[in-house]
Simulated assay, not measured.
Amino acid sequence: MITLPSFDEMYQALLDKNSQYEGVFVVGVKTTGIFCRPTCSARKPKAENVEFFSHTKEALTNGYRACKVCRPMKEYQSAPEWLVPLLKEVEAEPERKWKDYELTQMGFSPSRIRRYFNKTHGITFQAYLRMSRINGAFLKIKEGQTVTQSAFEQGYDSLSGFSETFKNLTGFSPGKQGQIVTINRIHTPLGPMMIGVTDEGLCLLEFTDRKMLETQLDVLKKRMKSELVTGKHPIIDQTEKQLEEYFEGKRKEFSIPLVVPGTEFQQRVWDALNKIPYGVTRSYKQQADVVGDVKAVRAVARANGENRISIIIPCHRIIGSDGSIVGYGGGVHRKQWLLKHEFENQ
Rank of each mutant, 00 (worst) to 15 (best):
M1R: 13
M1C: 03
I2H: 14
M10N: 03
Q12N: 06
L15W: 02
D16A: 06
K17T: 08
E22L: 15
G23L: 11
V27K: 02
G28N: 02
K30N: 10
K30L: 15
K30I: 11
T31P: 07
F35S: 01
R37P: 00
T39M: 09
P45Q: 03
A47M: 12
V50I: 06
V50N: 05
K57Y: 12
A59P: 00
R65M: 10
C67F: 13
R71C: 11
R71S: 09
E75A: 06
Q77N: 09
E81L: 12
W82V: 03
V84S: 12
V84A: 14
P85T: 12
D100Y: 14
T104Y: 12
Q105A: 15
M106H: 09
S111T: 13
I123D: 03
A127H: 03
R133T: 05
G136C: 04
A137R: 13
L139V: 13
I141V: 08
Q149V: 09
S150T: 14
D157C: 14
G161Y: 02
F162G: 02
S163Q: 10
K167M: 07
N168I: 04
N168P: 02
N168G: 01
L169Y: 13
L169M: 11
K176Y: 09
N184S: 08
I186M: 04
G191S: 12
M193T: 04
M194P: 05
I195D: 01
T198H: 13
L202K: 03
L204W: 02
L205S: 00
D209A: 13
L213Q: 04
L217G: 00
L220C: 04
L220G: 03
K221Q: 14
M224V: 15
K225V: 10
E227F: 15
V229N: 10
H233W: 01
I235M: 08
I236G: 05
D237W: 13
L243M: 06
Y246G: 01
Y246I: 10
F247L: 07
K250H: 08
R251T: 06
S255A: 13
P257N: 04
V259P: 00
V260C: 06
V260D: 12
R268D: 10
V269K: 05
L273H: 00
G279M: 11
G279P: 03
V280E: 15
K285A: 09
Q286K: 03
G292V: 10
G292M: 11
G292H: 10
A296E: 04
V297D: 02
A299F: 07
V300E: 01
R308M: 07
I309S: 02
S310R: 14
I318E: 02
G320Q: 14
G320D: 10
D322L: 09
G327P: 04
G329W: 09
H333S: 07
W337N: 04
W337K: 12
E342M: 06
F343K: 11
N345G: 04
N345C: 01
